[in-house]
Amino acid sequence: MERDLPIINLEGIDFIVDVSKFELREKEDPGNIITLEDMRDVGDGYVFDQWEIPEFVKMDPEGMATKYKIDDITGKTDFDLMVDQEAFDKRVNQGILPILDISGHPFYVDLRMDMLRPHDDFLSKGIVFDEIDNYFSEEVNAYIIPYNPKTHEFQELDYENITGFPKDLIAVQFPFQKELDPVGWNRAGGWDIKDDLKLVGVKSHFEAKTVPWEKTWLPYVIKDNLKRQKQEEKKKPTVKPVQPKDQNRKGRKM
Rank of each mutant, 00 (worst) to 15 (best):
I132V: 14
E207Y: 10
A208C: 09
D224H: 13
P212V: 01
T151W: 11
K203S: 07
G190C: 05
Y147I: 06
V239C: 02
K125I: 07
A188T: 10
D196F: 11
I145D: 01
Y143K: 07
P212H: 11
K250P: 02
I144M: 12
K167Y: 04
V239A: 10
N134T: 08
K167T: 00
W191E: 12
D120R: 15
D181S: 09
P175F: 08
Q173H: 04
K250A: 09
H205R: 15
F129T: 02
K245L: 12
Q243A: 12
D121S: 10
R249D: 01
S124D: 07
K234Q: 12
I162Q: 05
K240P: 00
F129I: 13
A171C: 08
N134Q: 13
Q177I: 08
Y220W: 10
L157W: 04
D246Y: 14
G184S: 06
L180F: 13
V242M: 08
P182K: 14
E207P: 01
G251T: 02
H119V: 13
P182E: 04
D181Y: 13
Y143N: 06
D246I: 07
S204G: 08
E131A: 13
F165H: 04
T238C: 05
P219V: 00
A208H: 09
Y147C: 06
G190P: 03
R117Y: 11
W185P: 01
E131V: 08
P219R: 01
A171S: 13
F165V: 12
I144D: 01
E156K: 14
D130A: 15
K250M: 08
Y147H: 09
D181N: 15
P219T: 00
K215V: 00
R117V: 04
G164F: 10
P175D: 04
I162H: 10
I127Y: 12
A171Q: 00
F174I: 06
V140S: 15
I132F: 07
D168H: 14
F154L: 08
R249H: 01
G251W: 06
K203N: 07
V140M: 00
I144S: 04
D195M: 11
I144W: 01
V242Y: 09
D121T: 09
